[in-house]
Design a protein around this nucleic acid. Structure first.
Length: 321
DNA sequence: ACTTCCAGCGTCTTTCATTA
DNA sequence: TAATGAAAGACGCTGGAAGT
């Protein structure tokens, strides 16, 4: 039963990642027969998952802009989210419409993710983020104001806060909290900074003296996905490192098919080298992403990170000696 | 590309016996 | 009496072949 659920979720993510994917390919990727995929498609349609087949030889795709994001929770976080069900009745008036079905989808996505343990950049979307914050505020290691942040985000009310980062301090800045996202086990607030008139990303750890303001804001047409896609580095202002990565032909193919999580600063196709600008506090995530290519991608520069990579690999190797 | 039919297989449920 | 274990049967999932 669990296997099947995992497979259903995998189908959803595969169709999402590659609209027009054929049943044959789905079968290969899931390690099952086409027959099983057809059965799963029936099951998904019975669950009102809006997948449709586009006609002979054109494969499957989602109707409209349905989307699920994989999550990356710790066990405790996943448990907390699962327990949210018990609290939902109490906070119902606060919840936006469509919340409950979003919750179900997230829970399903979590199953799939547990099974695959893929290391990808994770986004907690709007409804999910709202919900998550409600719960995470109850965890002792999280700052108490996260609840306030959550409520402000939900009600679309601006906040005032102090913010410090890299010994640089800003007092009493007004922020429109758009989204809370989870990245590599750290929380970030993506919001509009009224002082500078730009979208910014704040470490929640750097925030203090958070106070709700009386006036609200509108998100207009802000597109979180687009915003995230062009930013590996969340902090515009922080120091950046330029990586030069050499990919194998195979991985170049994979990149071409699946697209890049990170926008390269420069591409040298002849030598199969990509250049990426990565902010220093994201380098670990970046290195792990490169690590996921195994022998198919090599850090050419900077040499320091070659050492970091070598150290990582040796640590792993020591387990098998 | 998709459906229908069917046999094989594993898992879950039920039943009954055994043990503490 | 309740908990545990074993055996048997029911059930659902799966892949393959053949057909639309």
């Amino acid at each position: 039963m669990t296997d099947r659920l995992i497979r259903l979720m995998r189908i959803i993510t595969l169709v999402q990642a590659k609209p027009g994917i054929l049943a044959r390919e789905l079968a290969e990727r899931c390690g099952n027969s086409e027959r099983t995929i057809y059965r799963d498609m029936d099951a998904l349609s019975a669950m009102h998952i809006p997948i449709t087949h586009l006609g002979h030889g054109k494969g499957y795709a989602f109707i409209g802009n349905f989307a699920l994001y994989p999550l990356d929770w710790s066990d405790e976080e996943a448990m907390a989210f699962a327990q949210l069900r018990n609290l939902m009745d109490d906070i119902k008036p606060l919840l936006p419409s469509g919340f409950e079905s979003a919750y179900e989808k997230v829970m399903a996505a979590e199953y799939k993710h547990r099974a695959e343990k893929e290391e990808k950049m994770e986004i907690v979307g709007r409804e999910v983020g709202n919900t998550w914050m409600e719960r995470s505020g109850l965890q002792p290691e999280q700052p108490a104001f996260l609840i306030e942040l959550f409520v402000a985000m939900l009600k679309q009310k601006s906040i005032q806060a102090d913010y410090s980062e890299n010994a640089h301090e800003e007092k009493g800045i007004a922020i429109d909290p758009y989204y809370i996202i989870l990245l590599e086990n750290r929380f970030y607030l993506i919001g509009y900074c009224q002082q500078f008139g730009v979208m910014r990303t704040f470490h929640t750890n750097g925030l203090s003296n958070v106070k709700p303001l009386k006036y609200g804001f509108s998100k207009d047409n802000f597109d979180l996905q687009a915003f995230m896609k062009h930013k590996w580095a969340l902090d515009k202002d922080s120091l950046q490192v330029e990586f030069k990565i050499k990919f194998s032909e195979w991985s170049m193919e994979r990149i071409r098919e699946e697209g890049l999580l990170v926008k390269p600063a420069k591409v040298d196709r002849d030598n199969r080298c990509y250049h990426f600008k990565v902010s220093v506090d994201q380098e670990y995530t970046f290195v792990r992403w490169i690590l996921s290519f195994e022998e198919e991608a090599e850090i050419v520069e900077p040499s320091y990170y070659r050492e970091v990579m070598r150290h990582q690999l040796e640590k792993g190797l020591s387990l098998y000696k």
